[in-house]
């Protein structure tokens, strides 16, 4: 299952990765090989099989609507790359 250069670029855009040309080449061929290998799952006819999204059969886990302390401003911005007043600042969106 070969993945085209355009598909690599499309996926990189979706994932917000600015790949270099070299990366596009290398990742493209590696992805093709990996997709070939994982595409094996298609060999099984599983039309009647239920998917397993979770190893445990749990349901209805929730918490009461009781508040817990939020962070202090120092903690909120402790790791922030940029800040303006009490906002996180980013380039124009």
């Amino acid at each position: 299952m070969a993945i085209t250069r355009d598909e690599v670029l499309h996926v990189a855009r979706l994932a917000r990765l600015a790949l270099t040309d070299e990366e596009v080449e290398r990742l493209g061929s590696q992805l093709s090989a990996i997709l070939e290998a994982v595409g094996k799952v298609a060999e099984l006819d599983l039309a009647d099989v239920e998917p397993t999204s979770h190893p445990l059969d749990l349901a209805n886990v929730s918490a009461d609507d009781e508040s817990r302390p939020s962070l202090s401003a120092d903690e909120v911005f402790a790791n922030a790359p940029d800040r303006e007043d009490d906002f996180f600042r980013v380039p124009p969106a």
């Binding site: 994982v38 799952v41 298609a42 099984l44 599983l46 099989v49 239920e50 998917p51 397993t52 999204s53």
Partner: peptide
Amino acid sequence: FYGQAQKVRTV
């Protein structure tokens, strides 16, 4: 892919 893999997980 993902959907089929989840079924394989059941198997």
